[in-house]
Design a protein around this nucleic acid. Structure first.
Length: 274
DNA sequence: AATGGCGCCTGAACGC
DNA sequence: TGCGTTCAGGCGCCAT
């Protein structure tokens, strides 16, 4: 799924839920992690402002104005949220419904790698444990080219896999990691500690540029993804290399190649990336 | 400590 | 048409 752009597009499209009063929480088949509380805990609470951290969404649920709990959502690989004025009966892949007086927030996730987890706060367990290993946000001003380079120097894995891990910077999954490396002109197999400062700076800028473009395009819809109003993303049509094996590189005209790293497909242009 | 690999679950696309 | 195989956007956990 859903990489950072899709989660951000989802966040923006469900903003209307803020201020709604929760009528009930219904869960379907088990998701990746259990809710960790009785669904009734949400009842009668007021929805606060939805936030994003990495590929997670945090929905505060205020109890008489007190911020003492909320729901942490993850879309896994095939999940999407819908904001429904009139929710039809839950289908076989609808595994969470947050019913409110303004509509229903519904998680649809065929593969069930997603999750909805109750937590007393974003900074407390279980949410804190799930977020503990996340690297910096890509648009955090504290993430400098110098800091990014310093983090790269401590790793020997291939840069593509390091980007996927989210420990250097969160948000780039398989689509955007490939495209960002193309933008930066870096071979995806390059060891992190062989990337000099100038190239590291170029890579960080490329990650930011690709993610920004993807958010503007409404994300990528390879199959399941839709925003909360049912709109599909458009980035997949403008991908630089992702999913374009055998096609011509837009920059040099060479042929885009596919390889496998850590059991994941990587796409790159041998002519443009070194 | 860092790294590589596995598995969770379902559906679609493909080859025979 | 039917069946088996392969592949998918993530990520925590395990063994090395």
């Amino acid at each position: 799924m859903p990489e950072l752009p899709e989660v951000e597009v989802t966040r923006l499209s469900v903003a209307g839920v803020t201020g709604a009063r929760v009528l009930g929480l219904r869960l379907g088949k088990p998701l990746r992690w259990p809710l960790g509380a009785e669904p009734e805990v949400a009842h009668g609470r007021t929805v606060g402002e939805i936030q994003r951290r990495g590929k997670y969404l945090w929905l505060p649920l205020l109890n008489a104005g007190q911020a003492d709990g909320g729901l942490l959502w993850h879309l896994g690989m095939s999940g999407s949220l819908s904001w429904l004025a009139q929710a039809p009966p839950a289908g076989p892949h609808d595994h969470a419904d947050l019913h409110t007086d303004r509509g229903t927030l519904r998680l649809t996730d065929p593969r069930r790698f997603g999750a909805v987890v109750w937590s007393p706060a974003l900074g407390q367990d279980p949410a804190a444990k799930l977020l503990a290993r996340l690297g910096p946000e890509p648009f955090d001003p504290a993430l400098t080219p110098q800091g990014f380079h310093a983090a790269l120097r401590q790793r020997r894995v291939a840069i593509k896999q390091a980007l996927l891990s989210g420990e250097l910077v969160v948000g780039a999954g398989n689509i955007y990691a490939s495209d960002a490396l193309f933008e930066a002109g870096i071979d995806p197999r390059t060891r992190c500690d062989r990337i000099a400062a100038a190239r590291a700076a170029r890579l960080l800028a490329a990650v930011q540029r690709v993610l920004t473009e993807a958010i503007a395009a409404g994300g990528s819809t390879l199959k399941d993804f839709k925003d909360a109003h049912g709109t599909v993303g458009q980035y997949q049509g403008q991908a630089r290399v992702y999913g374009r094996e055998g096609q011509a590189c837009q920059r040099c005209g060479g042929t885009i190649k596919r390889l496998v790293q850590g059991q994941r497909a990587t796409y790159y242009c041998p002519g443009c990336q070194h």
